[in-house]
Structures are given as structure tokens and as C-alpha cells.
């Protein structure tokens, strides 16, 4: 119960210290510059989505991948991640099959929810360097329910 003036100073200094540290933290991060920027070394086009229009359920995306000079990328390992503009959903990450001439088709891809999708293409090039590029795929027709039941039923239906 006995509080001295030192306690007072301590109590009052506490938030100040915390705020100062938080500001320093943000400044330090800003000094490091932006993060996670697109490398932009790839030119990715989704040439087809089956079924068309894209609908919740199994799907095959066919992509055409070129380098910045427009040359088709060959002999690369391409991983495709499908995610959404909404956080908190499990992304769909699949491998691809090379079709030649810079074209690749996804294996076992599925749209798990209707809405705006984002396709992230991660390429490990023949020389071992990795690059990634993002393409938007809007308006996938919805079917998934908030209770997730339809996911199972759509599987059963097929």
C-alpha cells in the first residue's frame, strides 16, 4: 500500500517508454524499406481455366510463362499457389506439368471458394534461381458454404 514517489515516476514513464520503443521499431522497419515486392521477372498469362467459367471445385489452369524479353520459360519447376484476397483461407498449392513452348498445366488444382482469386506462380528456373509472379483471377463462381458442407458434397457428386 505504501507507494513512493519513485513508483509514481515509474508508472508515468511506462507508457512513454513503450510508445517510444514502438515508434523506434516502426522507424527501423521503414528504414529497411518495403518487403515482399514482386520480382517481376516473369510474364505470366492464364490462357485457360477449365471449367469455364471458373467454378468452385476441381479445375485445371493452363499458364503461359515467359521471361521479361518474351522468351518462353522452359525446363523450369513451376509451383502454383491459389489464394484469395481474403486472409485466413487455406491456399491451394499444386505442382504443374510442362506442356512445352512455355505452357504449363496445373495438377490437382481446385477452387475452394467463390470470389476473387489470386494465382501466384513460383518458378525455379533451370539455373536454380527462383522467381515469382502474381496474376489475378476474379469472380470464381461460388459454391463453398460457411459450414463447409458443400465441399464434401461436391466431392461426392463427382
Amino acid at each position: 500500500m505504501n507507494r513512493s514517489i519513485h513508483d509514481v515516476v515509474e508508472v508515468r514513464a511506462c507508457p512513454t517508454i513503450a510508445v517510444v520503443f514502438a515508434l523506434l521499431g516502426v522507424l527501423a522497419l521503414i528504414a529497411c524499406g518495403p518487403r515482399g515486392q514482386e520480382s517481376g521477372a516473369l510474364d505470366v498469362t492464364i490462357i485457360s481455366v477449365a471449367p469455364d467459367p471458373a467454378t468452385v471445385g476441381d479445375a485445371v489452369l493452363t499458364l503461359e510463362i515467359r521471361d521479361v524479353d518474351g522468351n518462353p520459360i522452359e525446363g523450369a519447376t513451376i509451383e502454383v499457389e491459389g489464394t484469395m484476397t481474403h486472409a485466413g483461407m487455406q491456399p491451394v498449392i499444386v505442382a504443374t506439368e510442362a506442356l512445352g513452348a512455355g505452357k504449363y498445366a496445373t495438377r490437382d488444382f481446385r477452387f475452394t471458394m467463390g470470389g476473387d482469386w489470386v494465382i501466384i506462380v513460383r518458378a525455379t528456373l533451370a539455373d536454380g534461381t527462383t522467381v515469382q509472379q502474381r496474376v489475378d483471377l476474379k469472380g470464381v463462381q461460388g459454391e463453398m458454404k460457411m459450414d463447409m458442407k458443400s465441399k464434401d458434397s461436391s466431392q461426392e457428386g463427382k
Partner: peptide
Amino acid sequence: LAVSALILYDGFWGPQLAP
């Protein structure tokens, strides 16, 4: 507050894809 600082930094300077 530290978590908020992280959110502010990433929101302004991080990749603009929510997930």
C-alpha cells in the same frame, strides 16, 4: 502496441495481398 507497429509497417510497406 508492438503488434500494432508491425501491422502498421506491413500494411503500409508490405505486400498488398491480404493473406
